[in-house]
Amino acid sequence: MRTAAYIAVMALVTYLIRMIPFTFFNKKIKSPFFRSFLYYIPYAVLSAMTIPAIFYSTGSIITAVVGTCAAFVLSYFGMPLIAVALAASGAAYIAGLFLA
C-alpha cells in the first residue's frame, strides 16, 4: 500500500512536469540565469546520482571500479549510450569471474 502511494506520486509528478509545459507553454524563457540553470541541471543531477553510488552498484567495489573505468573510457571516445552501459556491466562481470 505504501509502495502504491510512492508509485502514484512519482508517476503524477513526472507526468505533470511534461504535460503542463507541452500543453500550455507558448513563450520562450528569457532569463539567461534560468536558461543556463536548466541547461546545467541534467548533468549535475546525473553526476550527483552516479558518484559515489556507482561504486556500490555491483556489490563489490572492485568489480564496480572496473565497470566504471570501462564506461569512462568508452564514453570518452563517444560510444553510444547502450554500448557504454553494456560494456560497464560486461567489464564488472568479467572482473567478478577473476575474484571468484
Binding site: 555491483t58 570501462a70 560486461g90
Partner: peptide, 13 residues
C-alpha cells in the same frame, strides 16, 4: 549483480 551498473554506465555516457 554486474547488471546493477548498467544504468550508471548510461549516465556516464
Amino acid at each position: 549483480s554486474a547488471m546493477g551498473i548498467v544504468l550508471y554506465g548510461m549516465f556516464l555516457a
